[in-house]
Amino acid sequence: MLTSANLAAILPFPDIDPIAVSLGPLSIHWYGLAYVAGILLGWFYARRLVDNGKLWLNDTAPMTRQHLDDFILWVALGIVLGGRIGYILFYDLDQVLANPIRAIQVWNGGMSFHGGLIGTTVAMFLFARRNQIPAWSMFDIVAAVAPIGLFFGRIANFINGELWGRVTDVPWAMVFCSPHVIAAHNGACPAGPDPRHPSQLYEAGIEGIILFLVLFILTRWALALKKPGTVSGIFVIGYAFSRIFVEFFRQPDEQLGYLLGTNWLTMGMVLSLPMVAIGLWAVIRARQAAAGQTA
């Protein structure tokens, strides 16, 4: 229960304009810059991994810098198209069927990570096949850099005052209302006046920083890239458990709410559960393949 002491301890939500730069009629949003930063920094780090042949099977990277340069457009399309289509199918299908123009209104709901993952996987598979790159190595290098994009994306969610957490009385709770948030929603504050978990920051820390460090250790010290599929599998497992954990603090999408009559089960959890099985399968397959090569 909230008390006056709790309320006094609530952290102020920073009033950051979601629009980073305005050039006449052109507005550049932090959300868009987050995508650009994630892709470009991921591309830079991926090039460093490719340059280090000792990290790879047979001490030779199965792709070149030029491949990574060409792949940027593919992965951007996979993220954006997959993320939007995934959100519509998983979270907003009824509303889109009732009003099809809503499908291109990215400010209504935005993107789905699980959809973006599917879109990126399709892009990776097609690109690898076209360029005769081992698919699992393609998956691994993208998985190794993906937490960078997740980090920036969640920070952008925080700046936008969206995907907020559940109501709470923890000392670091925030009221997700600010003049810019209210202005962006025609004078309303969607999160209401209650203090909530800053779940976007939880996700940025766990899915972004911690998962990146785990994969960094695996690639640099454990030489996991020498067992294609290992990094991909660990990334999928790590993201799934991170998302399931944070869903206990994150407010579910209004149009779906909690599932199966519970007060805790969310669509984010349901979509993440199969990822654990897929990730475990990828890691086991990688170990078996490596054992077969050394037998």
Rank of each mutant, 00 (worst) to 15 (best):
E254G: 13
P179F: 12
E203I: 12
S199Y: 09
D169W: 00
G233N: 07
F248S: 08
I182L: 14
G233V: 13
G233L: 08
L211Q: 04
A184Y: 11
V246C: 10
C177P: 11
R243K: 02
E254R: 14
I237Q: 01
L218N: 04
F235C: 08
I209H: 05
L213N: 06
A222S: 07
Y202P: 11
V246I: 11
L223W: 12
F212T: 06
R220S: 14
L223Y: 11
T219R: 03
F241E: 09
F212C: 08
D194W: 14
L223N: 12
T219S: 13
H185T: 14
K226E: 05
Q200N: 05
R243P: 05
A240Q: 00
I237V: 10
V175I: 15
P228N: 04
N186S: 15
Q255D: 14
I206A: 07
A188I: 12
D169L: 01
Q251C: 06
A224R: 00
D253S: 09
T230V: 04
R243V: 03
D194A: 15
G208D: 11
H197I: 11
P228T: 09
F248W: 09
P171C: 02
G208K: 06
K226W: 00
A224N: 03
W172K: 02
G233K: 11
V181Q: 09
L201W: 00
P198F: 05
E247W: 08
Q200H: 04
I206K: 01
A183D: 15
S178C: 12
I210D: 07
G229T: 05
T230G: 01
G233R: 07
P252H: 02
D194Q: 14
R250N: 09
I209D: 12
V214G: 01
A183T: 15
S232Y: 15
W172R: 06
K227I: 10
R243Y: 04
L223Q: 12
L211E: 09
P179M: 14
H180M: 10
L225Q: 02
D194K: 14
A173T: 04
G187S: 10
V236P: 11
A240I: 00
R220P: 10
T230F: 02
E207N: 11
G238C: 02
P193A: 08
S199K: 01
V214E: 00
P190Q: 06
D194I: 09
Q255C: 09
L225N: 08
P228Q: 04
I234A: 01
A183K: 15
P195M: 06
V246N: 09
F176M: 10
R243G: 02
F176K: 05
A184W: 02
I182S: 15
I209Y: 06
P252Q: 08
S242T: 13
V231N: 02
F241M: 10
I244E: 08
L215Y: 02
C177M: 11
G229S: 02
P198H: 00
F249S: 09
D253K: 05
W221C: 13
F176C: 10
I206L: 11
H197G: 07
C189W: 07
S178G: 14
G208T: 13
R250F: 06
V236L: 12
R220A: 14
A222D: 00
V236Q: 06
G205W: 03
N186F: 15
A224L: 03
R196M: 08
I237E: 00
G208I: 12
P190C: 10
F249M: 12
T230E: 00
Y239I: 03
D194R: 15
Q255T: 15
G205D: 07
